[in-house]
Design a protein around this nucleic acid. Structure first.
Lengths: 185, 185
DNA sequence: GTCTATATTCCGATAGAC
DNA sequence: GTCTATCGGAATATAGAC
């Protein structure tokens, strides 16, 4: 299988995502992305209509993954075991192939708002909260449920790591998230 | 006391902080800040040497507040009651007059890195973690300590509110933070 | 698919009058 | 302290050759 090629589109996505997360969406120019790939700006515009389209391309992938997760959660409501499984699956999404996208989002909230993708994502996270919370309306319980989700999302955010260079292991984050979401005694 | 005026500098700070948090630092132009204040760009440059200086002006205020907090914490180490008090004081900083600054930071991490203020802030948060953690080296305990701090910082972040329009009350956040930082049985 | 060249717009910043 | 006017540069995006 020597005759591959035309993975240029994926390479653009990967490099753009990396630079957007590192330096910010606005601060990263198409020139810089092109230089990293030994291309020209014009070549980028062959693969993506605009700079915003690059973001939409990987955001829609994450949206699908979250929709699958929420769909599963909706169809298994009212089971404590299912609520745990939702957190487990969310942890897998956040720590897996979508980790760079999560990191991009946490570092570029204003850009996400302006690109019109923030609201849709916020709505999905809200539903995740509701699934984990399972109808409890005590404010402290709700906050703990949100913190369970946040504990998992923080895996993509080096700012809050114990060692700034080392993120907490995924299994520790999951364990703490599960105990936060568990009903109190 | 009719002869006031020359609060222009403070008005610039307030409006810039608001727009930076809402739309992002890079996306907010000096022209836009000036228009909101019925001034011109040139007038802004009388009060601040550069756009970056506006950020530094309110970031150094927050740095002082955090330094006071950490200084108090350092001098009261090894007391469980003092560790709780550190969280209480941090909650007051985060939910008080510095809430807009905290919000700006969470929304503009890449800009903070580029302006050279991110590292100093990260170091202070790291020390706060260490004070709250009090030498415990179990990874789960460390993560819970960090989540205690995060629970308080999230008060400035509408993204993770139960109702997107209403942030959790400060007292609830503080209570959950205290129980997260408390030693397990 | 990728290039060179360019159109257009807007930004941060400065000069100098008042 | 605030203005008008302007500079230099960099950004997104497009046209058209190969």
């Amino acid at each position: 299988m020597v005759g591959r090629r035309s993975d240029t589109r994926e390479r653009i996505q990967r490099v753009a995502l990396e630079l957007f997360a590192e330096q910010g969406y606005e601060k990263t120019s198409l020139r810089e992305i092109a230089e990293r790939l030994d291309l020209t700006k014009a070549a980028l515009y062959y693969h993506f209509k605009t700079k915003e389209d690059i973001v939409h391309s990987f955001m829609s992938d994450l949206a699908s993954a979250l929709d699958d997760l929420l769909e599963w959660g909706r169809s298994h409501r009212d089971s404590a075991h299912a609520r745990e499984e939702v957190l487990r699956r969310f942890s897998a999404v956040v720590a897996g192939e979508y980790a760079p996208v999560l990191r991009f989002m946490q570092q570029n909230m204003p850009a996400m708002r302006e690109l019109g993708v923030k609201h849709a994502f916020a709505a999905k996270i809200q539903e995740l909260f509701r699934l984990v919370c399972a109808g409890e309306d005590d404010p402290a319980t709700q906050l703990r449920s949100r913190l369970a989700v946040v504990a998992l999302m923080l895996q993509a955010n080096p700012m809050f790591a114990a060692d700034p260079e080392t993120l907490p292991p995924a299994d520790v984050a999951l364990r703490v998230a599960l105990e936060l979401a568990a009903p109190r005694d």
